[in-house]
Nucleic acid binder design. Sequence first.
DNA 1: TAAAATTAATTAAACGTTTGTTTAATTCAA
DNA 2: TTGAATTAAACAAACGTTTAATTAATTTTA
Lengths: 216, 216
Amino acid sequence: MGSEQGLNDKQLWIMKQSLEVFAEKGFDATSVRDIAQRADVNVAMISYYFGSKEKLLEAIFLNHTNNMKNKIGAIIHSRVHDPLQKVDLLIDTYVDAIVENRSFHLLMMREQVLLKDGLLYNYIRDMKQHNRTLIEVAVKAGQKSGIFQKNIDVSFLAITLIGSINHFFSNYKYLCDAKAVPAEGDAYQAEVLEKLKNHLKVMYKAFLTYGITNKK
Amino acid sequence: MGSEQGLNDKQLWIMKQSLEVFAEKGFDATSVRDIAQRADVNVAMISYYFGSKEKLLEAIFLNHTNNMKNKIGAIIHSRVHDPLQKVDLLIDTYVDAIVENRSFHLLMMREQVLLKDGLLYNYIRDMKQHNRTLIEVAVKAGQKSGIFQKNIDVSFLAITLIGSINHFFSNYKYLCDAKAVPAEGDAYQAEVLEKLKNHLKVMYKAFLTYGITNKK
DNA sequence: TAAAATTAATTAAACGTTTGTTTAATTCAA
DNA sequence: TTGAATTAAACAAACGTTTAATTAATTTTA
């Protein structure tokens, strides 16, 4: 049903390599010859296996959006019952998911703003819907148990959460510039990632529990 | 010194029209013939007036980043003394600035993530530095007067603020889809913009004043 | 002020590359 | 021996840019 992509190793290899070039140069600026060179295959193989450069992109998107939806589903069914812990888990998961898929995240960030309809638009739309649902579940649980305030718009909450994380990653180099830190240092990157997570957790706790008097 | 662009009416016209096409299709996917058609000029005029397609982009960036820096400077020197009011003004200004420059904002969002150095990178870096400074001034004033908590990292605060606003605009269509609202309705757009501003103000107030007991 | 000279603006056509894709021949594996 | 995989070469179309000729505007000169 479309999600059964039935991809062989060579196809997956080409998808992996081309994704990296797309992330580096952008989809439009990447030629099929760039891809062929990176993946060390003949140019004709892209058309042979995927039909076109556009369909190669679609295959990459289908692959990654499906993977992400599955990961998100796993959190929904996780047995963390404390609402604040659930929000923390959510923040950790999103940040980690992007770290693990930096290239795809970069590519998607760039392409999503121009899309108006079509396959790619639908893939992204469905994934975003999953995200909102996940946040909604956590928020409603917190409200039910009385520790979250009532006046919360889940859409805006998703926007500030995903928006903050996205902006952090797409502006990481500018941030390193501002702090006069080399952008390649793995130690600093791990440190600043923890700081980001912490900042978001504190900020969300402050907002979600705003006006609630702690009765413990 | 570089900021004196000395542009004539025809150049400004071409910049305005090409910016719209860039925003719609992306820079790489836009041909000089696309631009010529939109601006109703001969293709050769782009090279004649700007030297190249790339330098046309640079002219657009220089023009807009300068304008934005000036607007930001105006807030810094504004005589709003209440720190919370200053934060509110900041949020309003950012949102309004993007609304007034939708096309450029879209273009910049797409291009900034791929830049590693060069003219465009520097333009954006300097503008971001201005943003951080502006936020820093407001935060420090709030901390000095005792109504803001001490544990605030200005970089992260900028990331969540700008990131949220950016994400809102680049995902507006997805949001309308989710709420089953037509994306073109001006009335709804004005309404949801107010909601965004309000959401951000409440969220920032909650975070900035977190742990501070109101002594009024 | 009117004609001449000079500069700026505009044009259609052509330039050499690069683009995504296809072809037809060949190699490889079952 | 059949079908899939791989190749180098060719394809037309589109790309950004330049050219050389022409028109429009401005300045200089008489």
